[in-house]
């Protein structure tokens, strides 16, 4: 837990023991605290249903669409509390959330997808130059910019979803499972582009992934979430070496059989 005490001013995003409730009864997140350093890349790891997506929705404000709400704790972006701000205004502040499952505007062309996401105040010329920039990052999209987005391949749709998010001029990009259902070479390509934008533009990235191997290659820090709680937080290097992480998420370890792992995992959960 070495990096926990970073100075708050260096964090573009900080969550302070937040709780999320659905329908006023179901507690999905129980005191999650995470921080994303300015210009840094951080991963949120964990299994299905651990609360990773919910955490991102709490940050982007999209919880509202699912009748969820942050019932305790606070979320700061750039030092400002954002709990009462609408999703649109959060996007305007510079938070953009690439939601799970790509969700491109299927009946629009990729070009129109990018148009739709451009801020209302952006000039025509700036939109054109921003779109050019996106096509330079994602040359595959440039080839298909006038076809219907619903018919793009899974990888192309994921690229479009990311490019669409970048059109909103974010300072913090949150990606929910961008590798889902994609071939490994596409995952590598997409992660490479994200890394490049992070380096070139200083874009901060919060990455939610089940594919821990790929994620830990590009981030500096990682948080492990289980059952709505952060159970581990460390640098990517240490996480990769951690035996529990190797066991459960990286598929390494000493090759215990499934029964042992299940038992061990249950015991670990009680301990944490």
């Amino acid at each position: 837990m070495a990096q926990n005490e970073t100075n708050l001013d260096d964090l573009i995003l900080s969550l302070n023991s937040i709780e999320v409730m659905y329908d006023s009864v179901l507690l999905a997140i129980k005191g999650v605290s995470i921080g994303v350093p300015r210009g840094g890349m951080v991963a949120l790891l964990g299994s299905n249903g651990a609360g990773k997506s919910t955490t991102l929705k709490a940050i982007s404000g999209l919880l509202k669409a699912e009748r969820g709400k942050v019932s305790r704790g606070d979320i700061r972006f750039d030092g400002k509390l954002i709990g009462d701000i609408s999703p649109q205004d959060r996007v305007a502040m510079g938070i953009c959330h690439v939601i799970e499952g790509r969700r491109v505007f299927e009946h629009l062309t990729p070009d129109e997808n990018l148009d739709a996401a451009a801020p209302q105040s952006m000039s025509r010329r700036k939109i054109a130059s921003e779109k050019e920039r996106m096509y330079e990052y994602f040359p595959r999209l440039a080839d298909r910019k006038s076809s219907q987005s619903g018919y793009l391949s899974g990888g192309e749709q994921q690229m479009l979803a990311i490019a669409r998010a970048l059109m909103t001029q974010p300072r913090l990009l949150m990606l929910d499972e961008p590798s889902l259902g994609l071939a490994p070479f596409l995952v590598a390509e997409i992660f490479g582009i994200i890394q490049r934008i992070n380096k070139e533009q200083g874009l901060s990235v919060l990455l939610v992934e089940q594919n821990a191997i790929a994620a830990l290659e590009i981030v500096s820090h990682g948080y492990l979430i289980e059952n709505g709680r952060v159970v581990m937080h460390d640098t990517a290097e240490s996480l990769k070496k951690n035996s529990d992480i190797q066991e459960f998420y990286l598929g390494g370890g000493e090759g215990k059989n499934f029964q042992d792992i299940k038992h061990y995992s249950r015991r670990k959960r009680w301990l944490s």
């Binding site: 649109q88 505007f105 739709a116």
Partner: peptide, 15 residues
């Protein structure tokens, strides 16, 4: 048109 395609995705990009 984007809104009619996907409400949640529209919110996510600030529409």
């Amino acid at each position: 048109r984007a809104i009619s395609d996907d409400y949640l995705a529209s919110w996510s990009v600030g529409i």
